[in-house]
Amino acid sequence: MSQLTRLRSCLPAAVLGLLLLLLGCDRPTGNGTSGANPPGPATSPGQVTTIGVAFESLMTEFWVAAFDKLKADCAARGITMLEAVADGDTARQFDQVKNFLNRGVDGVIIVPKDGKTVIPMIKACNAAGVPVVLYNRPADPTDARHTAVAPDNVAITKETVTYLVSLARKTGRKQKAMILMGDLSDVNAIGRRDGFEAAIQEAGDAVEVVSRVPTDWNQEKALAGLQSSLQAHPDIGLIFASSDFMFPSIKSVLSSLGRWKKHNEPGHVIVGGFDGDATAYQLLADGYVDATGVQDVYWEAEQALQVILDAKAGKAVPARIDDKGFAITQSNLKELEPRMWGAVVAKKK
């Protein structure tokens, strides 16, 4: 009986030990990227067969469009794309990236939550000898090797807001303005805020910023912030959203106040944004939105994939690739529409 009891008490240790033993039995694989005992499928040098794509979120049209473009490009090149979405959880994203590396991917593309928490992930890729690209959100200064493909947020926002200010000036009176900011731990949000402030500084007396609302890239927070700002300043005449996904919130609040008007109607509130998504395109086409900064999601995706291919082929890759983007407005909509990714998505719908 006592022997049976002893056997029973040893069982969990035995099974756990067996499990770890089995787990620890490295199979001889390798793509030449991870040192003495590399995992993953065997590939010839320079060949890219599998890449890992880790997105922080797929909450907006922009991220979905980017994800779909990467998937399509990988499929077209015969590359297997491993996918992961972290739902804003940086620890989870770190695990996902490590999973990719254990799987033996030939490259990793990351959309990080912010520029700092991604640095350990880049270092993990560096340690495994796997090229890594940060898509749309660059890292904070670091000596970890990577390439960032990202928009020039400051320049594109400044161009967009300068156009909005020119509309404000045409009204003949000083307009009260507000900005819906993003998550200020995200360099994109900081860049867009800085671009807004730079344009406002040059605007002189045309506008006065009365509200700066932090939204953390959260639509509910954007809605609540808008409501509060418009309650405190009912005569706000210019609203800039740091991302187009906030347009539905703006529409909702302005509609409830009877101020959701087209650009050629009296009482119109000047509205601008950033991204160039399908909703923005539709609202521009319908005349409710005046301008939005467009980043070229498709071009950025192509560049990200090309960097992986070049790095694997042994070519030198840059540390930063800028998406110059452009501002699409009521004045140039027809001309620039074919270059706006949101217009392409909207027309597919």
Binding site: L20, L22, L23, G24, C25, D26, R27, T29, S34, N37, P39, G40, P41, D95, K98, N99, L101, N102, R103, G104
Partner: peptide, 17 residues
């Protein structure tokens, strides 16, 4: 069926995670 699942790196990853 899963490349890399039984690798030492993945063991460490699972345990650390």
């Amino acid at each position: 069926f899963t490349p890399g699942f039984a690798s030492r790196g993945n063991v460490a990853n699972v345990l650390v995670a």
